Amino acid sequence: MALAALDQVKLLLVCPQCRSALVAGDSAFHCVSAACPYHPADAFPVVGRLPVLVDFERSILRRQDLVGPPRAAGGRLPQLVRGVWKPLNRVAVRNTERLLRLLPGPAPTLLVVGGGTVGNGVAAVYADPRVQVIGFDIAPSAMTQFVADAHQIPLADRSVDAVLVQAVLEHVLDPAQVVSEIHRVLVDGGLVYAETPFLQQVHAGAYDFLRFTASGHRYLFRRFSEIDAGTVAGPGTQLLWSADHLVRGLTQSTTAGRLTRGALFWLRYLDALVPAGYASDNASALYFLGRKRDREMSPKEIVRYYRGAQRPR
């Protein structure tokens, strides 16, 4: 694993509220600013080995929820079953390998937002000995160095070379604020790779908030130049999700829905037959690979950006 040591990460940490430096203790961290409400010595508790750097006044997270042992990094499904239920994300494999090739220098830092587990298809990020991976999530995990809310990333300005955010932005209340934070912590010219659902059913209960069209996803990253963008999974996969959840609704059984998904797994292979424009309009999920810039995409530019199959009359 290429996870950066916690002692290295501590040098980059800042207060999530005022962005002043932090003082690290054995059982808690605190802000150095006497004017900050997180100045008391026990302001940011350590759970297990991880500091909990959350501004609870501005977050939906609750202090009492962040207790207990870190969760495991692996999946719960047997490998054979997982291959049918959730096959390897080959789009992520291709794009993360490209991201790694674009990273500069001998020891670049890469931040994984929502990195409590190794995402589908992004294992190469953790296997590259050149890359120093920093990860955080909203709960302790063996794959992270701190707990945080992505709306207030507790890292210094221009402190990382790249950011990976996979299947996270639908679970935050204000994606634009999270992307703004990603822009802030990236070095000038830094890279971002994002994967986000478009046509998918609710899959995290009360913590599932938003979806994005291809144009909406691009505009979310309007302060980045585009290197590449496209579909992670197309209409066939979207139909598979719908069949699963239709059966769940008719039978009120999650198991029945999952069995339906297993029986109709072949639908996802229809994605390869759908032209790119139609796939973009009906995608299950989308990706964006881009580079930080100062200029912001204009409203007129995003209208011209549309690449789908629907043409103006």
Rank of each mutant, 00 (worst) to 15 (best):
I302Y: 08
L267V: 00
Q8A: 13
I138Q: 12
H39M: 05
A214G: 09
D26K: 14
P51V: 03
A309G: 10
H183C: 09
Q200M: 12
D188M: 02
P175L: 10
R218M: 06
A43M: 00
A285L: 07
Q17A: 12
D174V: 09
H183M: 04
A214K: 04
F221D: 01
A162L: 01
P129D: 02
K86Q: 14
L220H: 02
V147T: 05
V303L: 14
H203S: 04
K300D: 14
P299M: 02
S33M: 01
R291D: 05
Q177R: 15
T144V: 10
A43E: 04
I227S: 02
G262A: 13
R258C: 10
F224P: 13
L220G: 05
V303Q: 07
F29E: 03
D65C: 02
S242E: 14
A5C: 09
P106C: 08
M297V: 09
D281G: 00
D149E: 03
D161W: 10
R62I: 09
G230M: 01
G74C: 12
T117D: 10
L286Y: 05
F265H: 14
R90H: 12
Y287W: 05
P175M: 03
Y38E: 11
F221K: 07
T96F: 13
R130T: 06
L77F: 11
L103G: 02
V54L: 06
H245C: 07
A309R: 07
E97F: 04
S242T: 13
V91I: 15
F221G: 07
P69H: 01
G74N: 13
L88K: 04
T260I: 04
Q8W: 11
G277F: 00
G74T: 14
V46R: 07
P154R: 05
F288G: 09
L155I: 05
K10H: 14
L102W: 09
G249A: 13
D188F: 03
